[in-house]
């Protein structure tokens, strides 16, 4: 399961539209979530609507939060996206196998069984999150909170049973629109001090940065659409473990 998490504080102003880039990501099997960080209401109407649009095009969700809430929000969005993706896959399976539209339509004992499988999948599916960080001048006072949010997210990723990787980009770079700071890693230590040496610049090439992240997914994992959630286990589990559903009154 692949996600891009964009952390920004406002409107892009250079290069391809980030909304188009996000749509492209979604097309390639990468979900795009956006956290808009504000501390003094500086995001503006334009920035806010762009943030919402990027997430909509990228099949993800967006939140506009203060630096204090950033860690929690980043975690919540990552987790919810995993849960949501699995739910979609499971619901599709339910339609095909049981002819019901969703988990809600199952009687509680059956539901208990399905949810158990969903939880297992959520915990064990391989997960890759590329964090794309807006480091334009106005973000400077917020980068400490961003670093903290990344550290916090990596802690939660590390605790998962399944393979969990994160990579960090920031934009703009000195020459190129976007720089890879930390390649795929599953260790928290690698995210020590990310942006200590950054020289802040004015432009905000959000679109090109997203394209760079998509490119990186492609470079490291080839065609990404192919491997994904396999709710096929749902059926097997159901047949062999039918007894367990008896626990729930």
């Amino acid at each position: 399961m692949n996600q891009i998490l964009l952390i920004t504080d406002g409107g892009s102003n250079v290069g391809v539209s980030p909304v188009v880039a996000a749509a492209q990501a979604y097309e390639e099997g990468i979900i795009v979530n956006v956290a808009g960080v504000i501390d003094d209401g500086s995001i503006g109407e334009y920035g806010a609507s762009e943030i919402a649009e990027i997430a909509r095009a990228g099949g993800g969700m967006s939140r506009i939060v203060s630096t204090k809430q950033l860690s929690q929000t980043v975690q919540m969005m990552t987790r919810q996206t995993v849960v949501g993706t699995i739910r979609q896959a499971v619901n599709q399976e339910l339609r095909q196998v049981f002819g019901v539209s969703s988990v809600e339509a199952l009687p509680p004992p059956k539901r208990a069984e399905v949810v158990r499988v969903m939880e297992d999948m959520g915990e064990t599916t391989p997960l890759r999150v590329a964090l794309v960080i807006d480091a334009s001048a106005s973000m400077k006072p917020k980068l400490l909170a961003v670093e903290e949010a990344i550290r916090d997210l990596s802690l939660s990723l590390q605790a998962r049973t399944g393979e969990s990787m994160a990579a960090v980009f920031h934009f703009p770079g000195e020459q190129e629109p976007c720089v890879l700071d930390t390649p795929w890693t599953s260790s928290t230590e690698r995210f020590g001090s990310l942006f200590g040496k950054l020289r802040m610049r004015g432009t905000t090439p959000t679109g090109p940065a997203l394209l760079r992240a998509i490119e990186y997914f492609r470079e490291s994992y080839g065609k990404i659409m192919t491997e994904d959630v396999h709710p096929a286990s749902l059926l097997k589990q159901d047949d062999t473990d039918g007894m367990r559903s008896g626990y729930v009154v």
């Binding site: 509680p108 539901r111 208990a112 949810v115 969903m118 939880e119 626990y247 729930v248 009154v249």
Partner: peptide
């Protein structure tokens, strides 16, 4: 539904394991 059912599952397996008076009484 899924969040709630996940919690109920845990309570159910705890009840099953502890064999005391059940803590989870109904799911609906």
């Amino acid at each position: 539904v899924s969040d709630l059912q996940a919690e109920a599952n845990i309570l159910a397996s705890l009840d099953h394991r502890e064999k005391k008076q059940p803590f989870l009484l109904d799911v609906d």
